[in-house]
Design a binder for these strands. Structure first.
Lengths: 194, 194
DNA sequence: TGCATTTGTCAACAGTCGTTGGCATATGAA
DNA sequence: TTCATATGCCAACGACTGTTGACAAATGCA
């Protein structure tokens, strides 16, 4: 307790980061149930008891690992005719770029059988997707339009990254942008409203 | 061994059906890992050992429970401008009608963490979805178009039935048909090809 | 009636899981 | 140096899992 913030990153915080990295990798690959604390510990080359010491229990470890920040662009400041293309390009960065990490894969893989992950995913929708869609078009209609956008994007993620459907894996970035972009464009701008 | 087929449906086949029904319900609600053999036995009001006796082990029980027959309509015999609407209507019947059962929910819920379920789902795509899409338009391009259709439909199922995203749950059948129908129409007929 | 087969229950097995407490070692300030 | 603290390993706990074998009750043919 001699120091508060500086140089506190000595030894413990490094293994803490190792554990978290191992957890994010394994949760993203096998889901909440499929990745045991012993697996995480082995991946981090450490004793299982340490995982509990640094993160109180498995649920808290999962909560720390399942942090998602989509960093979606502000759609109201770009050309209104390219919002669909903008969204699908960002989608590919999130899932295939190295900056975002496996956060979405962790949530999506676990949400089908772990209620906490499902709730977290619904929060991502409400706090990060819906506001962005609400910024263009009728705000009172944002839920429906954001829901349609999410259905297409989560489905594409399921087929391409989790289920690995061969024809969907084989799609090039350009093909995805050309095919899915117009769908998102129509959902966001809502040309065929209720 | 006195009789072969007739009256064989006496006692055992009835409990066998009870077990299978309980398994389909629980697998569809909680996935492969989330539903234990003891849970299935309790739901069927029977001893866990009987579940093993009737179905050799949990994997075989799951395989028997995860049978899916989409019964998609033959698209080549209907008006080519309504294939999208036809598909989305059939989708709603499969997921909300009482005839099809929870087969798709079982597969989709377990596919994210159970490789056997993922493979089974890929087979459903290859054997039941892809041929139907291939019947209209360029057959050499069927994989891509069927993949896009599946991405939209599996995503909608995820959001509406598994994740239960409130705005997607709130959509009426008519809204779904009006919004998603045109997307499927464009994917199947492939107006914007590679 | 007797008797073989079916249908079912019970207890227990080996394994894995999350989690805990005790003990050894390393670190760093005094 | 001395000693408190931080960091780590080990063994074990209770609970749950899929699965098995022995034994009891019911069934149906002779």
């Amino acid at each position: 307790m001699t120091e508060n913030q500086p140089k506190k990153t000595s030894k413990s915080d490094r293994t803490r980061a190792h554990i978290l990295e191992a957890a994010r990798h394994l949760f993203g690959e096998h889901g909440y149930d499929g990745a045991s604390i012993r697996d995480v510990a082995a991946q981090a080359s450490i004793d299982p008891a340490m995982v509990i010491r640094y993160f109180r229990n498995k649920d808290e470890l999962f909560a720390r690992a399942a942090v998602v920040d989509l960093q979606l662009p502000a759609l109201q400041v770009i050309d209104r005719t390219t919002v669909g293309e903008t969204l699908i390009r960002r989608f590919l960065e999130i899932w295939e770029g190295s900056a975002s990490g496996p956060g979405m894969a962790i949530l999506l893989r676990s949400s089908t059988s772990h209620e906490f992950a499902a709730e977290k995913l619904r929060e991502v929708f409400a706090n990060q997707v819906r506001p962005v869609v609400a910024a263009v078009g009728d705000p009172t209609d944002a839920g429906r339009r954001a829901g349609l956008v999410s259905s297409q994007l989560l489905g594409l993620a399921m087929c391409r990254y989790l289920l690995r459907l061969p024809p969907v894996v084989a799609l090039s970035h350009d093909e995805i942008i050309r095919n899915v972009g117009p769908t998102l464009q129509r959902y966001v701008t809502g040309t065929d409203a209720p």
